[in-house]
Amino acid sequence: MELVAAIQQIYALPTDELDRLVRITERIQLEKNNILIDKDKTAKYIYFLTEGICRIYYPKEQKEAVLDFCFPGDSILSLNSYIHGTPGYEIVDTLENCVLYRIPVSKLQRLYNQSLPIANWGRKLAELETLKIEQRLMQTLFKTAAERYGDLLTKEANVVQRIKLGYIASYLGVTQVTLSRIRAEIK
């Protein structure tokens, strides 16, 4: 998904306001295994992924908990940094070579003060990100690991070929042995 489509799916902007937003974006390419957002650091950008896969995870002691995966068309941001300007708790890294567009939060904040449509776009972005978190929580609370795995396959059919099974198991909150059983049942 290209940048304009990603922006417009959040909240439709008039052409002149869309142009203002697009002008402050920068296209970047990152190789596999790069940190996009780092824990305990204030993220200076929001991102729109157009190619590749990213992983959002929380490191804890000797393990890490995978919170989500990002696929083309997804926005990526640290809500703590975006809303409060404070460091986040998550790490976002690239699992493949990625193409992204990034918008500096500081420039975006200035546009919010100058443009009501862009401010509404930013509000809608925060709302959608909050809903993603709520949806993930509801999945965790009310769906089985097999159902959540099925949802992941629906979102990205060839996910097993592109993401390490250990990451998928962590995302589902199961061991790799349990994931193997789930995969065998779904085939």
Results as ranks from 00 to 15, higher is better:
residue 34 N to V: 06
residue 169 A to L: 05
residue 176 Q to L: 10
residue 162 R to H: 08
residue 65 A to Y: 07
residue 37 I to V: 14
residue 145 A to D: 00
residue 158 N to V: 00
residue 40 D to V: 02
residue 148 R to M: 15
residue 23 R to D: 01
residue 108 L to G: 13
residue 20 R to F: 13
residue 45 Y to N: 15
residue 79 L to E: 03
residue 147 E to K: 12
residue 92 V to K: 06
residue 13 L to W: 00
residue 93 D to M: 13
residue 22 V to N: 10
residue 86 T to M: 13
residue 122 G to Y: 00
residue 33 N to Y: 06
residue 101 Y to H: 15
residue 146 A to M: 08
residue 127 E to F: 02
residue 29 Q to K: 11
residue 92 V to R: 07
residue 100 L to E: 07
residue 7 I to H: 01
residue 94 T to C: 06
residue 110 R to F: 12
residue 141 L to D: 06
residue 25 T to K: 04
residue 178 T to C: 12
residue 16 D to S: 13
residue 31 E to S: 15
residue 81 S to I: 11
residue 63 K to R: 15
residue 43 A to Q: 06
residue 7 I to G: 04
residue 84 H to T: 01
residue 185 E to C: 03
residue 151 D to H: 09
residue 91 I to L: 08
residue 165 L to T: 05
residue 149 Y to D: 05
residue 83 I to A: 09
residue 87 P to N: 07
residue 11 Y to C: 04
residue 154 T to D: 14
residue 130 T to Y: 14
residue 1 M to T: 12
residue 30 L to S: 08
residue 39 K to I: 04
residue 19 D to T: 13
residue 125 L to C: 08
residue 184 A to Y: 05
residue 33 N to G: 07
residue 154 T to G: 10
residue 1 M to A: 10
residue 1 M to D: 10
residue 42 T to C: 04
residue 40 D to G: 02
residue 52 G to F: 02
residue 23 R to S: 09
residue 85 G to T: 03
residue 157 A to W: 11
residue 135 Q to D: 15
residue 62 Q to C: 03
residue 131 L to Y: 09
residue 66 V to I: 09
residue 117 P to C: 08
residue 109 Q to D: 14
residue 141 L to E: 11
residue 75 S to H: 05
residue 34 N to C: 13
residue 174 V to N: 00
residue 94 T to V: 11
residue 143 K to C: 05
residue 8 Q to A: 03
residue 24 I to T: 04
residue 27 R to A: 13
residue 121 W to L: 06
residue 83 I to C: 07
residue 92 V to Y: 09
residue 46 I to A: 08
residue 129 E to G: 01
residue 31 E to T: 13
residue 21 L to N: 04
residue 179 L to Y: 12
residue 12 A to H: 10
residue 145 A to T: 03
residue 10 I to D: 02
residue 130 T to K: 13
residue 139 Q to V: 03
residue 22 V to E: 12
residue 143 K to Q: 07
residue 4 V to R: 07
residue 121 W to N: 02
residue 114 Q to P: 01
residue 123 R to E: 13
residue 30 L to I: 01
residue 55 R to V: 07
residue 121 W to H: 00
residue 3 L to Q: 02
residue 74 D to R: 00
residue 20 R to L: 14
residue 64 E to A: 06
residue 5 A to C: 04
residue 183 R to T: 08
residue 136 R to V: 06
residue 142 F to H: 09
residue 11 Y to H: 14
residue 29 Q to W: 07
residue 62 Q to K: 15
residue 177 V to D: 11
residue 36 L to I: 15
residue 3 L to P: 01
